[in-house]
């Protein structure tokens, strides 16, 4: 469903993505990990066109991202994204955060949008917070709303950019639980994360990136069992310690 072929990107003289290629099938859950600066956030933001790239192609459900004729807003409406800092719209209530794009982008009428939003809030366990504002919620609650907001658009795939990195430790689990449930429901997911427990539980594959390149791309069991590259081994040893 998502195909990346030899994607490269430069910021000025620095090359931040080097010849990245990967294929993600429908229903697959892929975890992308690696040290900071490895380009994993940049790569995932290229998939829905939030970051432009210089070389290569990215095809999502048959549509090419780099093609100037592609309508990016329409494509982005079909791909959900969850950010590290949640990025809920602070001036809108929770339910309005969920319904805004449904109304303005998908053209749904308000009643349907709100119904859909409430259903999703229920799914992430935040039904009674619908009229609250983001600033009144905890980090974990905000991130769950953010996931619901992305799901409200009925996406074909979901991208997660370090969804738990900005959370206090006691709130990480509630967000991961929602993501695990999503994976079990068959959603196609690309997740940039350090949470290896999550990876072992639901990921089909793990992609390891370092310095802009994809160093390893292996099924979960293989990756954790016997990673082939030294860099991956080093990385794993560092983060699996605690």
């Amino acid at each position: 469903m998502i195909t990346m072929n030899k994607v490269s990107k430069w910021y000025g003289k620095a090359q931040v993505l080097k010849n990245c290629s990967a294929e993600i099938a429908k229903g697959e859950v892929v975890v992308v990990c690696g040290p900071s600066g490895s380009g994993k956030s940049t790569l995932i933001k290229c998939v829905n066109g939030l970051e432009p790239f210089n070389e290569g192609t990215i095809i999502v459900d048959g549509i090419s991202i780099g093609d100037p004729k592609t309508s990016l807003p329409k494509l982005r409406a079909r791909i959900g994204m969850v950010f590290q800092h949640f990025e809920l719209f602070p001036h809108l209530s929770v339910i309005r955060n969920l319904s805004l794009a449904q109304i303005k982008v998908l053209g749904r009428d308000e009643k349907a949008a709100i119904e859909n939003g409430m259903r999703l809030l229920d799914r992430v366990g935040l039904h009674e917070h619908a009229e609250k504002f983001p600033g009144q919620l905890s980090g974990g609650q905000q991130q769950r709303v953010a996931i619901a907001r992305a799901l409200a658009m009925d996406p074909i795939a979901m991208l997660f950019d370090e969804p738990t990195s900005a959370l206090d430790p006691e709130m990480i689990q509630e967000v991961l639980d929602v993501m695990v449930a999503l994976a079990k429901d068959g959603m196609t997911m690309i997740v940039v994360t350090h949470e290896m427990g999550f990876a072992r539980k639901v990921a089909n594959r793990v992609i390891f990136m370092d310095k802009g390149e994809i160093v390893e791309d292996a099924p979960t069991a293989d990756f954790f069992g016997k990673p082939r590259s030294e860099r991956a081994q080093l990385f794993l040893s560092k983060i699996l310690q605690h």
Binding site: P73, R76, R78, I79, M81, F83, H85, L88, F89, A101
Partner: peptide, 14 residues
């Protein structure tokens, strides 16, 4: 935060 613009775009708004 730059993420606000990205979040708006990510959800399909022009």
């Amino acid at each position: 935060r730059s993420g606000q613009r990205m979040a708006g775009l990510a959800v399909g708004l022009t």
